[in-house]
């Protein structure tokens, strides 16, 4: 008994604080704690600011709706546009930031400095090592992005008709609300890990991950409008108020003109003709034909998109686990 107490006393200076984490999770936290803490701090501050802004925003929208006040649109533009612009820029770049600063160095640093050989030759082995690293980085990413995405979505929803003129598809709102930031961040995280694992150099891996992030963004711009079937609104050609029938919050994706039996012509057909009316009459064009996504379609599209990104992330994760298991360290 007294021998144990003595032994504990002797080792006391080495462990001043109580041990919360043990084993590999302790090591992974200790090794990456700077990145983890920066992520958590950004999530806490960012979410707090958004939650704080929400009270003022609902107040403003409520008052602006009263008669005799400037319209909600005008008030929003003056008081909240800059803030939303900044928040949107931050959330848009979040997946790339996570991929570059957390994902890319996660394994690359260990391979570059040789510490991968040090850690994987301890009694725990490499499978648990890579699983713990990926798991903890993914957990921190998940917690931080869920907090930020939830706070921003909550803030944005009352103003969804006002921000970027209500365009939730093209202007970036789609990618920074709901499950999208979480899925995109997890995908970029594992992409960064895989790139770092293959390249073994931290700086190179970070640069390549950044480029991969841009490439993913460009590709995603093509995928986004394919996540649901657009709805169609037709109204008589020349009816200036026909477009008002578009539901609130809808986003137009395409404009055509059409004949009575639904044959489509490009929007500019006959516009430059010498006799536009005669030209249209000859082709039988009688309707405007508008394709749009309703606001109620947004959530479904986001979850489908997030599902696709998460499936990709899962595939890359499997590849990383397989590679670490098979290849020399």
């Amino acid at each position: 008994m007294s021998a144990t107490a003595q032994a504990e006393q002797r080792t006391a200076p080495a462990e001043r604080r109580p041990r919360v984490l043990r084993g590999l999770p302790w090591l992974v936290w200790r090794q990456h704690r700077t990145a983890f803490w920066i992520g958590i701090a950004m999530a806490v501050v960012g979410s707090a600011v958004m939650i704080y802004q929400r009270a003022g925003l609902t107040d403003l929208l409520h008052h602006a709706a009263q008669p005799g006040k400037e319209g909600a649109d005008q008030a929003f533009r003056t008081h909240y546009d800059p803030f939303f612009q900044d928040a949107s820029d931050f959330l848009q770049s979040l997946p790339a930031l996570i991929g570059v600063f957390l994902g890319a160095p996660l394994v690359a640093a260990d391979r570059e400095r040789g510490t991968a050989r040090l850690v994987t030759t301890q009694s725990t082995g490499r499978n648990r090592w890579i699983a713990t690293k990926l798991g903890m980085a993914a957990a921190v990413t998940l917690v931080c992005t869920v907090a930020l995405a939830a706070a921003f979505t909550w803030l944005w929803e009352p103003a969804h008709l006002l921000l970027f003129g209500g365009d939730w598809l093209g202007a970036g709102v789609f990618d920074i609300t709901g499950p999208m930031p979480v899925a995109f961040s997890l995908l970029m995280l594992v992409t960064g890990v895989a790139i770092g694992m293959l390249l073994r150099r931290v700086v190179t891996a970070m640069a390549v991950t950044l480029v991969a992030g841009f490439a993913a963004q460009v590709a995603w711009d093509y995928v986004r409008p394919m996540l649901a079937t657009p709805r169609v609104l037709t109204y008589p050609y020349g009816d200036d108020h026909g477009i008002d029938q578009l539901p609130q919050g809808a986003v137009q994706v395409d404009n055509w003109i059409s004949t009575a039996d639904g044959k489509l012509y490009g929007f500019g057909t006959c516009v430059n003709d010498a006799h536009p009316d005669a030209c249209r009459a000859k082709l039988g064009i009688v309707n405007n034909y508008v394709e749009y996504f309703g606001y109620d379609q947004m959530r479904g599209m986001q979850w489908l998109g997030a599902g696709i990104l998460l499936a990709l992330a899962a595939a890359i994760t499997v590849f990383v686990l397989w590679w670490v298991r098979r290849r020399p360290m």
């Binding site: 080495a14 462990e15 590999l24 302790w26 090591l27 050989r117 850690v119 009694s123």
Partner: peptide
């Protein structure tokens, strides 16, 4: 290879955490 940012005590703790 060792973790250059770890202290000596942390390096030994790594040994302790990873080896039964």
């Amino acid at each position: 290879p060792l973790f250059t940012r770890f202290t000596v005590a942390e390096t030994l703790r790594m040994g302790q955490e990873l080896n039964p």
